[in-house]
């Protein structure tokens, strides 16, 4: 009897501890999504009148524009993720394996610096550097590399640079975690058995770090896919970013129904991509999440 009461009170405590998380999950994630789902399934029949229908989703598939933007967003996000990985790997390796103590803390801080200012300020900073009358084009002219200042803004590579810069830390951290746990003697053993830099990387380091790599890629991909400011400011007239479409539908077109449908499609896209990524890399979701 006493035991039963004890376990009942333990269960109560468990529920109390879980309550904030559950409330958060329910109130701020589940409910709005349910609401969005309902919204996306409405179509306008007259002023202030709506009926159930799939018109919003139909628009997406019949208007090539939206589909193009969708594909473009996914493609650029994938490229940005790959570039971030390429750039973050040596950084994480340096912090995890080649430096100790103060220096590695310093390197971490360097990766963190971009986050001391807001994304807006960061992006505006990039714009000041890259615009035709900005610092870098001016420098290129001074150095005699180009004859006239070139406009570096509003190009896809610029969007990529901005996205990679913004995402770097989110790749470095999980990579660092997984590389740090790699026993140095495994690398030595691989060398000892005749491996060279490339084969050791391919056969030992990458397989060991793959949960971290997958975790980093998922986080960066999601962040990039959902990025709004960097893509729309640096991309200018050609940015064509899917979140921008959603924003436009919600805010400037007052078309919440269309925006909600787009939102759901984006959610679907990212889920499919993450699932495919996990499949391709042979990772389990739970393993990867424990790395993030």
């Amino acid at each position: 009897m006493a035991k039963a009461t004890a376990s009942a009170s333990q269960r109560l405590i468990l529920w109390l501890l879980l309550a904030p998380a559950l409330l958060w999950l329910f109130g701020l994630i589940l409910l709005p999504h349910l609401d969005l789902a309902l919204l996306s399934l409405r179509e306008r029949t007259g002023p202030g009148e709506y009926a159930f229908g799939l018109a919003q989703y139909r628009t997406f598939f019949t208007e090539p524009l939206y589909w193009d933007v969708f594909v473009r967003t996914a493609t650029i996000s994938l490229i940005a993720t790959a570039l971030t990985l390429l750039l973050a790997f040596p950084i994480a390796w340096t912090i995890a394996k080649l430096t100790r103590g103060r220096l590695s803390t310093l390197l971490f801080a360097v990766c963190l610096i971009p986050f001391w200012v807001s994304e807006t300020v960061r992006t505006l900073g990039w714009m000041i550097l890259l615009r035709e009358t900005g610092v870098i084009p001016g420098l290129l002219v001074t150095l005699g590399i180009t004859e006239v200042p070139i406009e570096m803004l509003y190009r896809d590579p610029t969007i990529l640079v901005g996205l990679v810069y913004t995402s770097l830390l989110f790749m470095v951290v999980p990579l660092y975690g997984s590389l740090e746990s790699l026993d140095d003697s495994l690398i030595e053993a691989a060398y000892d058995l005749g491996g060279n830099g490339w084969t050791v990387l391919r056969t030992v380091v990458i397989p060991h770090a793959s949960p971290g790599i997958t975790a980093g890629c998922i986080v960066v991909f999601m962040l990039t896919l959902g990025n709004y400011l960097t893509a729309s400011l640096l991309g200018g007239k050609n940015s064509l970013w899917f979140t921008e479409q959603i924003y436009t539908q919600f805010i400037t077109r007052f078309n919440w129904e269309q925006g909600a449908a787009f939102g759901f499609l984006l959610l679907l896209l990212s889920s499919v991509m993450v699932w495919t990524g996990l499949r391709l890399s042979g990772q389990r979701f739970s393993d990867v999440m424990s790395r993030t």
């Binding site: 208007e63 524009l65 939206y66 007239k237 064509l240 479409q245 436009t248 539908q249 077109r253 078309n255």
Partner: peptide
Amino acid sequence: GRILDRVK
């Protein structure tokens, strides 16, 4: 809106 999207 649709026209503007197309221009964009």
